[in-house]
Nucleic acid binder design. Structure first.
Lengths: 335, 335
DNA sequence: AGCGCCGTTGAGAGCGCTCTCTCCCCGTGG
DNA sequence: CCACGGGGAGAGAGCGCTCTCAACGGCGCT
């Protein structure tokens, strides 16, 4: 920087002004400085800048999932799950125009302290926290750190933190309505894990809506949001309730598994059983028949999370606020 | 830090020694300092540290893919592709024990300068560069920057840079041998994009091996490594060469698409057509029948990239070296 | 002509850490 | 008993940047 200053015949302060686009710089001088920068190939040192501005221009995307016995498969599952992929994509696209970079940090409950340490060290200006499990303590810990944060779903305990969510119950209702409209009368569901709010909300939204339409008891099998889990649940369901004709599956991955089982067992979809998924992930298009599903705009939600986070970073005292997206039904071939 | 020093009754220098694990500290003093750190809740400021050590303890994972007209789908495709997910997982697992974090940077050729600027600014200590397209100029640019880097495949132009790759031709040969051993005699292939070395190498490895076994001409359709591309290619293939009985598909995603087409068209796999994929990604298990495929240990390769990168970072003058992994055949139900 | 103001620039003090260099004190050997 | 050596702690100089504050010069005004 001294070199640039000398080359341009000005002081360091002026070089700094030019670099940071300060308005009160004579245009001639600005030009000289810019030429000097180009000639010397000068690039600001971010560490020095961060030291004084206390900004790192990067945010963490923390993906918190419960323990897995085998760490290898844990990382694999996370980075291979299209849901997290969509989140990453959405956050990246919102952050990029602001020249803010994403540090991706997967974590299970065994290394929360590492994550907390990382955050405290000031590596990042804020956190996008993807945490779904009810008993996850990370949201609270992050909140207590006092660092700007946005979480991906309504926190289970009342924490004053901004979050972005989709109207889960409405989504489930959309699915129920559609199955009803098709004429299905023997309804069931494969739910998500019931220790996850979204799993619970989708199940509850489905059942409570159907209750108002004269279906007081709707059978449900709990799944785990994986394809294999969907297969197992579908088999179970068919064993316990062979006569069902309408099924809501709490995410697309499980629905894909279920579809496969139905095919293997010779049930025609949607004629014998109509199936509605949830997410509208790429998996919905990888199924046969193409999956009718409740669309959750994950990319847009992640982008919104990023926007809200940037607002929090820009104005520290800002009050937390929550944004809820509306799901919509995407009708394809399975229902 | 001053506070800690005062609380422990020592100088800042000693606190620094304790934090960085310098050996020459009296154990009693060390203990006092550690207590003081715990009491004050002190956390080192990483920016200040980076400023003097010139280390950021993070590396960039740059994923360079060619232009896409629509940026949104570009990000989506990258973050949803299991191949990149496995890379991220592998790199993360190797980096984590060293407390090095990953900044994920997708890029198309339109914003290479942004990436270069980011790297020059010293945000990261090194780069893991995922770049497959032949005409991609980023590897060269990164190399010219002089920043430690490891690329994911043998560079097309001779650049003195470390890389990690799998023996593509051997993988293709494994597939060919297996098909031959099954008794297939009407062989074909759906290749990857031919402007990608791995696409080319797999095609060429397949053909040149088969040539030595008395199959001078083997039909091939060029695919694009996507599921939909695989479907289209498979349709085309069946139209052009209705009698084929053995097919090598250059990646699992396309194989999954092809399998679907064969099912729709009533071709039994493997009885009518045996199919071998490439990658052994999760997609191989999502197919029916389960996909026989050439396993590419992507996670291990990414981990190795990270190890090599860390070695380069640790010893700046280190000569570039390349590591080649052996593929292996995973026999399941499709061939 | 003198005064004061505003628009620009420069000087310099940090930001919080590491690391070299110096110093001190103790143990050892002559 | 003194000289010497070495382990261990402290002092202080930066690392490269931003930003406040002061200074300066030109302008319009009285």
């Amino acid at each position: 920087m001294d070199q640039v200053a000398e080359a341009a015949g000005v002081s360091r302060a002026t070089v700094s002004r030019v670099i940071n686009g300060a308005p009160s710089v004579d245009s001639k001088i600005r030009e000289m400085v810019q030429r000097a920068i180009a000639e010397t190939g000068y690039v600001p040192n971010v560490a020095a800048r961060s030291l004084v501005t206390r900004r790192s221009n990067s945010v963490a995307l923390v993906i918190s999932e419960p323990d897995r016995p085998d760490n290898h498969s844990f990382l694999n599952r996370i980075f291979t799950d299209p849901y997290f992929g969509r989140i990453t994509a959405g956050a990246t696209s919102a952050l990029r125009p602001h020249d803010i970079h994403l540090v991706v940090i997967p974590t299970d409950s065994t290394d929360h302290h590492q994550v907390v340490r990382y955050l405290r060290q000031g590596h990042v200006d804020g956190v996008l926290l993807i945490s779904s499990h009810e008993q996850d303590t990370l949201p609270r810990q992050v909140h207590d750190l006092g660092i700007p944060a946005v979480v991906s779903a309504r926190p289970t305990s009342p924490i004053a933190v901004s979050y972005v969510d989709v109207d889960q119950r409405l989504g489930a209702r959309l699915a129920a309505e559609h199955l009803l409209n098709r004429g299905c009368r023997a309804l069931a569901t494969i739910s998500g894990p019931l220790d996850i709010p979204s799993g619970l909300d989708r199940l509850d939204g489905y059942r409570s809506f159907l209750a108002t339409r004269g279906f007081p008891t709707v059978p449900s099998i709990e799944g785990d949001f994986t394809r294999a889990g969907g297969e197992a649940a579908a088999r179970q369901l068919l064993t316990d309730f062979p006569d069902i004709d309408g099924l809501f599956v709490a995410n697309d991955l499980m629905a894909e598994g279920a579809l496969r089982v139905f095919q293997d067992l010779g049930r025609r979809v949607p004629d014998d059983i109509a199936v509605v998924g949830f997410d509208d992930s790429s998996a919905a298009l990888d199924c046969r028949p193409l999956l009718t599903t409740v669309r959750q705009p994950v990319e847009e939600m992640a982008a919104e999370m990023a926007e809200v986070l940037m607002a929090h970073i820009a104005t520290p005292g800002r009050l937390p606020r929550s944004v809820t997206f509306q799901p919509s039904l995407v009708i394809r071939d399975s229902a």
